[in-house]
Design a protein around this nucleic acid. Sequence first.
DNA 1: ACATGCATTTCGCAT
DNA 2: ATGCGAAGTGCATGT
Lengths: 235, 235
Amino acid sequence: MKARTVERPGGPDAAAAVAAGIADEALVTLFGRCEVVYDGRASSYLGPGDRLVVLKPDGTLLVHRGEQRTPVNWQPPGSAHTASVHDDCLVVTSERETPTERIDVTFETVYSLSVFDVEDEEALELSGTEADLRERVLDEPELVEPGFSPDETERATDVGAADIVGTDEAGRTVVVELKRRRVGPTAAGQLARYVDALARETDEDVRGILVAPSITDGARRLLDEEGLTFQRLEP
Amino acid sequence: MKARTVERPGGPDAAAAVAAGIADEALVTLFGRCEVVYDGRASSYLGPGDRLVVLKPDGTLLVHRGEQRTPVNWQPPGSAHTASVHDDCLVVTSERETPTERIDVTFETVYSLSVFDVEDEEALELSGTEADLRERVLDEPELVEPGFSPDETERATDVGAADIVGTDEAGRTVVVELKRRRVGPTAAGQLARYVDALARETDEDVRGILVAPSITDGARRLLDEEGLTFQRLEP
DNA sequence: ACATGCATTTCGCAT
DNA sequence: ATGCGAAGTGCATGT
């Protein structure tokens, strides 16, 4: 029995079913009219409405509305979930420490409650990431510029790790910052930081190349002012 | 009737129910054994396993495993969802443009399918954001430093908008970067960018103060090297 | 549409 | 645990 659903359970029945689901390390979903109170890094209140609430066996809590990709409220993995009854209504509580955060979901009505047994062993295979792009550049360093030769990846500096540090045709140190998508001022600033840090550290002149599919005007200005360059590379 | 659930529907029945739910602008959830193929900004493949799939009336698609807050695959709001049958199995497809992205969820078995009618008008009331922190600082500018006087918020520069620009006791221009949590090199670099941009623009000496609850060592070094300062402010 | 930065970012990896 | 940056980041806001 992989899935059990109860329609319109009363508060006590709902609480018992949720508690059992949590104990069984099942995935529990609730659809109902509820209020949500959150307090932790920030605080929020969400008045009554119909939402989908998901309790995962790893301690994740999600409260989803009918819109948006991001849950309106949530609790991260590792949180402790409990179900209780107040005034005959189901209350789902999630708490965690470091930082201390708490959510209470108080149901006026539970329209539907499901408990699912999850078996899922497969790993996600993802490609097209920045790490993939780096492999490509290490394979074909001339994508950065003719004569470029990579020396180190994830080169640690005082202020963070540079993607690739290498040497140009003329023997100068070059810092390469890679992005898989269009870059803005943040990426340009990042490159500038690494170039400055390496220049101080090595007491040499250091070049910087931002490698990405495209660049915004603001980022371009920042590169120009810092004497850095941009190299287009399709993802 | 707010919620309808079908247990172990066959492919054709499941497809019909999903299509009806989409047409009714309902929220549809599926729990079943499925494979997921994604292609768009990146590409991914997820082998067979039990997952919770959520179709929202706004065109959002979520594929959740039994772990993590973030869906293993998803499609953002505005995507077009369709249900079809291949080899007697339900296939849920979601497509969107700009950028072109597509997900196919192919079910081996649907253990449970629910269709929910969502009524939800309330707005989330959230506090403890950076905007709230800014209000506090504008009310009590001495939290930044004695004699500080704010002149402008979201002051546009060549390379982005500075949180607060004001004047210090001695009449010098001061850029304030506010953060509601511990700051690292990124925030310090951001402040450095705005200070440099304003100094170029006004051709004056410009000070910079990073205001946050705490700071990492790397960020502190970066501030020191740029001649910028840190001011502790609890959130 | 693009630019820019916040986010209860989350997440993974390294120290 | 903290530091740091990537993410298919999402999302709001302004232009």
